[in-house]
Amino acid sequence: MSKFACRIVWIVCACVLLFIGGCENSGLNHTSLDPVATAITVSTETNPPYESSILEQQIVVGFSQLGSESDWRKANTESIRDAAKEAGIQLMFENAEQSQEKQFEAIRGFIKQRVDVIAVSPVIESGWEPILHEARMAGIPVILSDRAVEVNDASLYITTIGSDFYEEGEKAGKYLLDKLSGEPGPIGIVELQGTEGSSPTIERGKGFRDIIKQRGDLIIRRAEPADFTIEQGRETMTSFLEEMGSDIKVLFAHNDDMALGAIEAIEAYGLVPGKDIVIISVDGTRKAFEMMVAGKINCIVECNPLLGPILMQAVKEVMDGRSLPKRIVPQESVYTEGVAEKEVLNRPY
């Protein structure tokens, strides 16, 4: 074969090889743009995994707690957190630290984040109508926990879950009438109230007064807010004692923590709590029961803080479109010295 013919054969072979290589490269490029392969890639990147889809369907509750001022409040918070976890409900928790302004900020944050339900333990009763209107305009139902609000339109919230504070005051008054039935008057009473303007302060005081007015010689000499804390209870009781001394025969404390602080003040003054001064408290914490076992508290009116399971059940009912009663009250009791030693072992908080 001549050199020219060999060159022609070489050129033809080279062209064939280039053509085959081009087809193979074209096939790879075509595979990388295959519609099915592309769809799979997009699906993996844009669709969330199954667990995320479940999370999106999870009920989300925004809860504004009023503070952490007492053992009762801490037990209440723990109950709500535990119940939410048990129910599979996502809880967004905000502590207002006794500030209504902070509660309003928290609720506006919940509205902005489009939670399913807002739950709130109001610091005080008044001033709630505008913020509840904001929640309604956003289409978010509101449940009140522990404390009530004073509004003209009760349809702004679904229900109130918590104790009947007026009845608690009545129970305290009835115990006192029975306790002092054989003692002549006049009998001086001092009252340690909770946060000024709060529903338990207003209602417990009213219930107590409505009962003891049956005896005109039971006289409330002083009533001051002590913010539901041990420190303020001690300080306020000290001022009462400095002013009236042994003329004080009865202390009605609106919660256990204030009663515990008052006991310290009474002992520091040189009097015997539970004997020189009859002490009635509200809540039912273990520390208060221990004081009752020691004879330093005479009566405890129970106020149940373990509202979490009831609250989460109410949330589920609301999300299912069911109606709820306007007030849900847990079962509660009154305890006196005779059952203190047995009952103290049953206190979960």
Score class of each variant (00 low, 15 high):
residue 103 Q to E: 15
residue 117 V to E: 13
residue 120 V to G: 04
residue 127 G to P: 05
residue 105 E to H: 06
residue 116 D to M: 01
residue 104 F to E: 13
residue 98 Q to K: 07
residue 108 R to F: 00
residue 111 I to C: 14
residue 125 E to Y: 00
residue 101 E to K: 10
residue 108 R to I: 01
residue 115 V to R: 03
residue 111 I to A: 14
residue 123 V to I: 15
residue 127 G to M: 05
residue 120 V to F: 00
residue 102 K to F: 06
residue 112 K to W: 07
residue 95 N to Q: 02
residue 99 S to I: 06
residue 121 S to D: 12
residue 96 A to Q: 04
residue 95 N to C: 00
residue 127 G to N: 06
residue 109 G to E: 08
residue 105 E to G: 04
residue 103 Q to L: 05
residue 105 E to K: 11
residue 113 Q to D: 14
residue 108 R to Y: 01
residue 111 I to G: 14
residue 115 V to Y: 04
residue 96 A to M: 04
residue 89 I to L: 14
residue 90 Q to N: 09
residue 104 F to L: 13
residue 119 A to P: 11
residue 100 Q to I: 02
residue 114 R to Y: 01
residue 118 I to F: 00
residue 120 V to L: 06
residue 114 R to K: 13
residue 112 K to G: 15
residue 105 E to W: 02
residue 96 A to F: 06
residue 90 Q to H: 11
residue 95 N to G: 01
residue 121 S to Y: 04
residue 95 N to M: 01
residue 107 I to W: 02
residue 100 Q to W: 01
residue 104 F to I: 14
residue 101 E to C: 02
residue 93 F to Y: 13
residue 92 M to H: 08
residue 93 F to A: 07
residue 90 Q to R: 12
residue 121 S to M: 08
residue 116 D to A: 03
residue 125 E to W: 00
residue 92 M to S: 09
residue 104 F to A: 09
residue 102 K to I: 03
residue 118 I to G: 02
residue 122 P to Y: 03
residue 93 F to N: 06
residue 95 N to H: 01
residue 118 I to Q: 02
residue 118 I to K: 01
residue 111 I to P: 12
residue 109 G to W: 00
residue 124 I to D: 06
residue 110 F to I: 07
residue 123 V to M: 10
residue 107 I to C: 02
residue 102 K to C: 02
residue 106 A to F: 06
residue 90 Q to A: 11
residue 123 V to Q: 12
residue 108 R to N: 15
residue 104 F to Q: 12
residue 118 I to A: 02
residue 108 R to Q: 14
residue 119 A to D: 14
residue 111 I to S: 14
residue 120 V to E: 05
residue 107 I to H: 01
residue 98 Q to N: 09
residue 108 R to W: 00
residue 116 D to Q: 02
residue 119 A to G: 14
residue 103 Q to A: 04
residue 107 I to A: 03
residue 121 S to Q: 11
residue 103 Q to V: 03
residue 113 Q to R: 13
residue 93 F to C: 03
residue 119 A to H: 10
residue 122 P to C: 10
residue 122 P to N: 10
residue 115 V to I: 03
residue 99 S to F: 08
residue 122 P to A: 07
residue 125 E to M: 09
residue 111 I to L: 15
residue 106 A to G: 12
residue 93 F to Q: 06
residue 111 I to V: 15
residue 104 F to D: 12
residue 90 Q to V: 04
residue 115 V to S: 05
residue 90 Q to W: 07
residue 106 A to C: 08
residue 111 I to D: 15
residue 117 V to C: 13
residue 117 V to S: 12
residue 127 G to Y: 01
residue 95 N to T: 00
residue 104 F to H: 08
residue 103 Q to W: 03
residue 123 V to S: 10
residue 108 R to K: 14
residue 99 S to G: 05
residue 93 F to V: 08
residue 110 F to D: 15
